[in-house]
Design a protein around this nucleic acid. Structure first.
Ligand code: FES
Ligand code: FES
Lengths: 134, 134
DNA sequence: GCATACGCAACTAATAAAGTTACATTTAGC
DNA sequence: GCTAAATGTAACTTTATTAGTTGCGTATGC
């Protein structure tokens, strides 16, 4: 698959969940629908659970469901929950000591930070319930 | 190295070139300074040449130099020349037929396109000459 | 002619992500 | 209690992308 398939998978799944919030879905069902593997689904949805967007239940009639109403979950919530910012320049870059590199780093970081904030802002305007309709 | 080392390498190199626009630099010099390989340098700078930002000369006293004044080359020029948009959702995504996936795709694409444009806009405000200090 | 540069193709190495397998644990229903 | 069905997780394999390397052809200044 391609990069950011995690975000695709998460958004796709939550969009469907927004349609029938009370239905419990198993990772096997979701994986089958999305054309991937249950373990991959659990990995991705696990992050959403950590972020408080989903709940999961083990055992016989277990599975996944939304932790709150679909109107209260926005695309930004999903994006942030996955913690994979499209705009790189994370803390993995060591701040350089040389003046040229430092100036460059600062400039680029400033721009990327602004753009990242703008992205999150725009995403936050759409709840997942708006995707499927209602 | 990490992802987007191409952009880092390109910006770093051009920032230095902006300091002494008339100096010719060989890919070996640049590679040595940047801690990489001459072939990698030629690969990256080759794209900048295709975009008209640099010129290269073969032979004895050959090497790389800016194709125009450093005030006329912005960070956006470099970013666009490399043709690796940070904001994914390129044409490699096939447009989905299902309505839910389609609505999601459209929404996300709209946001990303806007953000990408905003990024380029911000980058275009800084010429490479501004990094090293005129 | 020779040293020095780029251009390019082909290969290898390193990395990250997805996918897979296996198994422990939990839970509902009988 | 036993069984079936679900998640949780670790370990491994596969795949894709990128950087790095080697080798050689070509151009050019001295
Ligand atoms: S020497 Fe410091 S940026 Fe290149
Ligand atoms: S069925 Fe999942 S998006 Fe169409």
């Amino acid at each position: 698959m391609k990069r950011n398939s995690r975000l695709s998978l998460a958004l796709h799944t939550l969009s469907h969940m927004a349609e029938e919030p009370n239905r419990v879905r198993t990772s096997a069902d979701i994986a089958d629908h999305a054309g991937t593997n249950p373990v991959v689904v659990r990995r991705v949805l696990g992050r959403l659970r950590e972020a408080g967007l989903l709940t999961s239940e083990k055992g016989h009639a277990g599975g996944w469901r939304l932790a709150r109403s679909p109107q209260q979950i926005t695309l930004a919530d999903v994006y942030l929950a996955l913690n994979e910012r499209m705009i790189a320049t994370g803390p993995d870059y060591e701040v350089p000591s040389c003046s040229v590199e430092h100036a460059l780093f600062r400039r680029v970081t400033t721009v990327l930070t602004e753009v990242e904030a703008s992205l999150v802002q725009k995403l936050s305007e759409t709840p997942i319930s708006a995707i499927s309709g209602t």
